[in-house]
Amino acid sequence: MAIADYDIQVVFFDFSGVLAEEGFVQGLKEIGRQHGKEPDAFLREATEICYNNGYADGRVDEHAFWQDVRESAAIATGDADLRREILSRFVIRPWMLQAVSRVRTGATRTALLSDHTNWLDELDAAHGIYRHFDRVFNSFREGMTKRSLDFFRHACDVMQVAPQNALFIDDNPANTGRAESIGMHAVLYTAYPSLVTDLKRYLPAVVLPPEGNVC
């Protein structure tokens, strides 16, 4: 498709793994190591708990999530120590926030579309993340996750954009695949240099900042 054929009106950005380091993944792996668990297996176990017990879509609170993790994995560590392993690893990529600001012009709006929890609000309070976006879609607040096509449809409806005029950037191929299945354009984030190239296809006038601490 030629560049002129694209009419991107809204760009949706994932948070973990795109705007910030993957604190949830790396934190859970470290918790697993500390408790003698195989890190990847513990990550899968805790992730499924997060989705299945309702923490990811706001049906239960953080304590209920950690309680289920403790019971499933037979560990006794308290909430505060467990959450510290997660939150300390969400390192914001400031050049990505600047990239969002450059994408956000009069003709193009930006939105955050994330499977996250109350932790995202805490990270915003510390780093001023939300101000870079026209709308924030946090699964914990919206009551749905990216495991459902409804979350993508909901985000497009709220932003009043047709899926074919929306671009979604995520580091999880399952999520980009779901976005594409409803007609959205999608970019699988693997590294910043490739994002610069991919985004140029859709928004040729946008000049992204160099990778590094630029904000």
Rank of each mutant, 00 (worst) to 15 (best):
E142M: 10
I75S: 12
Q164I: 08
S148T: 06
K146G: 09
A179L: 03
N118Y: 13
A179T: 05
N138M: 05
S72R: 14
G143F: 06
H132P: 10
V161D: 03
G78A: 11
F137D: 09
S181L: 03
V103H: 01
P173E: 12
A111F: 03
F137C: 04
S72G: 08
T145P: 01
T108Q: 03
N118A: 12
E122M: 08
R178M: 06
A126G: 04
T108M: 08
G177C: 03
A186G: 14
S181C: 01
G183N: 05
R135M: 08
S148L: 10
H185Q: 13
E122P: 12
A73Y: 06
I86A: 01
D79E: 05
T77G: 03
A111S: 05
A107N: 06
D171H: 06
D79K: 11
N172G: 15
F137M: 07
S72E: 12
S101A: 13
S181V: 11
T108G: 03
R89P: 02
V103A: 00
E142T: 12
R102H: 11
I75K: 02
V158Q: 13
G128F: 12
A73D: 11
A179N: 04
R141T: 12
I129K: 03
A174S: 09
A74D: 15
A74V: 15
T105Q: 08
R135W: 13
V100R: 06
V69K: 02
N175I: 09
E122Q: 11
D170F: 13
Q160P: 05
V136E: 01
S88F: 06
F168I: 04
L120K: 00
G143M: 11
G128M: 11
R178C: 00
H154P: 00
